[in-house]
Design a protein around this nucleic acid. Structure first.
Ligand SMILES: [Mn+2]
Ligand SMILES: [Mn+2]
Ligand SMILES: [Zn+2]
Ligand SMILES: [Zn+2]
Lengths: 144, 144
DNA sequence: TTTGTTTTAGCAAATTTTTGCAATAACAAT
DNA sequence: ATTGTTATTGCAAAAATTTGCTAAAACAAA
């Protein structure tokens, strides 16, 4: 779950930006938190280790990584969560009733992605989609 | 573009909630704003007409309508926008470079929706999806 | 109508997120 | 190593959003 094999630190510089300790700390934190972390969780984890980072920096840096497509931002049960984008994308189904978050393999979106290219010339990001709805359990009445 | 033919006002009561003037005003505002309106736009429009609604009420009521699936909430170029859900769903492609928002017809999602049911027993909401990516214009270098 | 019950709205405060600006520090060039 | 340039950070303030609590009002039942 490390971001190091993705060479994101190097990529930051290659893309013309500066590699700061804060940026490295935030990528590290996202990795330790292992996906779907809130800005506040990132802040608190870093704060616990090296008590010298500003909340504004966390927010700005997360936005920066999203723009660079190194991190995804998604809404999950009300919270805004961040996750490192790995080389193989994955997605989620989120149940509106019980809050359950399940995995959706990327291949389910291949067809759609293709259609968007063909019909609209649009290259979809589709790094980490979350689709809301009602899960199997809640439909069969188990979730009640 | 009126919500009246959707009988949302009646539905509020039928589903066991109370029909308040604030709720009606917010649905009306969403209609006049004609889709993709921010909470603040809703607030300001109502404020201009009947200067007696609280911001907290706007936020809470928009969340309430989302829960009831009468209104959709989406992220569009940084802003959180709301739109009345009509009987026929529609979606959007949002360009990450130029910000262009284009229409995506619902039939493009039929295949995916079906797969989610088959493979996961999941009933996706798919009322108003927004997919981020790069539009045709920006790819051909027009958007630069 | 009037009354009683319970949901909803308003208000004020708390919390979260964004922003402007000056100081700092990355990095390229000497 | 030192220096200069410019992106990035921290800080403080502003703006946006959420929350707890009380008063108001919607609605059901008399
Ligand atoms: Mn994920
Ligand atoms: Mn729309
Ligand atoms: Zn569920
Ligand atoms: Zn574009």
């Amino acid at each position: 779950m490390s971001h190091y094999r993705l060479n994101y630190l190097q990529q930051i510089r290659d893309r013309g930006y500066r590699l700061t300790p804060q940026r490295a700390l935030i990528l590290d934190a996202l990795c330790s938190l292992n996906g779907h972390a809130t800005a506040n969780q990132v802040y608190e984890l870093i704060e616990a280790q090296a008590p010298a980072i500003n909340r504004a920096t966390v927010y700005r840096t997360l936005a920066f990584f999203c723009q660079l497509q190194m991190v995804s931002e998604s809404q999950m049960n009300g919270a805004t969560v961040y996750e490192i984008i790995q080389e193989r994308p994955h997605h989620h189904l989120v149940c509106r009733l019980c809050g359950d978050v399940s995995l959706l393999e990327d291949h389910h979106l291949a067809e759609l992605s293709q259609q968007l290219t063909q019909a609209h010339g649009f290259t979809a990001d589709l790094n980490h989609l979350t689709i809301s709805g009602i899960c199997a359990g809640c439909q069969s009445g188990v979730g009640e």
